[in-house]
Amino acid sequence: MSQKEIELILMRQLASYLAMPVFLVDTDGTLIYYNDPAERLLGRRFDETGEMPVQEWSTAFTPVDEAGAPLPPDALPLVIALSEGRPAHRRFGIRGLDNAVRQIEVTAFPLLGQGDRHLGAVALFWEVGT
């Protein structure tokens, strides 16, 4: 069992107390933690799923733009934060398993540790209505 870096551990601990959905991914994009509020978006509990590879979690909901057209992955803030190493923000819709589209604001930022360690990225989701 390899141990997560302290910054990821502390981020998880903070997220577990927050009321807005928080997603935490490692450098590969694997979803290593999501908090209780995020379970509503994914429709699954972290305690049940554990870690999820990017292919799995990114298809749990379909991101769509203002016109309802699917958004490519590289337009998503979390992907930008991870691949380009910079903060990113965007408003878009997500079509859940119930086929309803919810409007959300997403802010994502990379986690850079001391000694230039790339640790992953964090995304905060904010539901703004349907």
């Binding site: 069992m1 390899s2 141990q3 302290i6």
Partner: peptide, 9 residues
């Protein structure tokens, strides 16, 4: 679990 515990490794 150990992988989520500071100082484990």
């Amino acid at each position: 679990a150990g992988d989520w515990t500071s100082g484990f490794a």
